[in-house]
């Protein structure tokens, strides 16, 4: 059977709600549901967990690194409108963390004004790059002798096609039947 192992990749985009869902309806509004093929069920990926998985370094007010990770001075290619000219990852993390605080289980009700202050252009990309399956393959041919032939012969028959124009058959060397 023509079966081989093949990998594919998928990514999912996590985004905050673009319209105000309500003061008490903010919880889990940034989460996504994806399919877990091993557990055979849908799994909720929370914004807070995805943000933690980005592993961006965190500094305290004194400038000391409290959580190591990707440097906060790293510049994004595209900043949001609210970030302005500041394209640093530290600013992005601050805006993303505000969403984590607003949508967590323990979050206080969010007012409409507080919702407007949040940066709605923040995104987190969750990638699953090595999804591996055993895949079947098939061979499709045009019917007829023009395509080729299936040859049957003794086990020690050799077929030589090494030359472009000359194809030789080296027949079996077994003894003739008695």
């Amino acid at each position: 059977m023509l079966t081989r192992s093949s990998q594919i990749g998928e990514f999912y985009v996590m985004s905050p709600p673009q319209v105000f869902p309500g003061e008490k309806s903010m919880q889990h509004s940034c989460d996504i549901l994806i399919f877990d093929e091993e557990a055979d069920r849908h799994v909720r990926v929370t914004w807070a967990e995805a943000l933690a998985s980005c592993c961006i370094e965190v500094k305290n007010e004194g400038g000391e690194v409290t959580k190591p990770g990707i440097e906060g001075d790293t510049k994004l290619s595209y900043a949001t409108d609210k970030m302005g000219e500041d394209r640093s990852l530290a600013t992005w993390y601050k805006a993303a963390n505000a969403w984590a605080d607003a949508t967590s289980d323990a979050a206080e009700p969010t007012t409409a004004d507080a919702f407007k202050a949040l940066d709605k252009d923040i995104r987190i990309v969750v990638a699953r790059p090595f999804i591996e399956h055993l895949m079947h393959n098939a061979i499709m041919t045009v019917a007829g002798r023009d395509t080729g032939a299936t040859l049957f012969g003794p086990a020690d028959m050799q077929l030589s096609a090494s030359h472009g124009t000359t194809r030789t058959w080296q027949g079996p060397s077994h003894a003739p039947p008695r």
């Binding site: 790059p129 499709m140 395509t147 080729g148």
Partner: peptide
């Protein structure tokens, strides 16, 4: 023995035969 290769097409990965790995919801980190 194929004498006209342009008449032959290998259709790759046309059907899933089984899961191996990489499809769960766990972060590497």
């Amino acid at each position: 023995m194929v004498t006209k290769p342009q008449n032959v097409l290998i259709m790759r990965d046309v059907a899933c035969a089984g899961y191996v790995a990489g499809g769960n919801a766990s972060f590497f980190t």
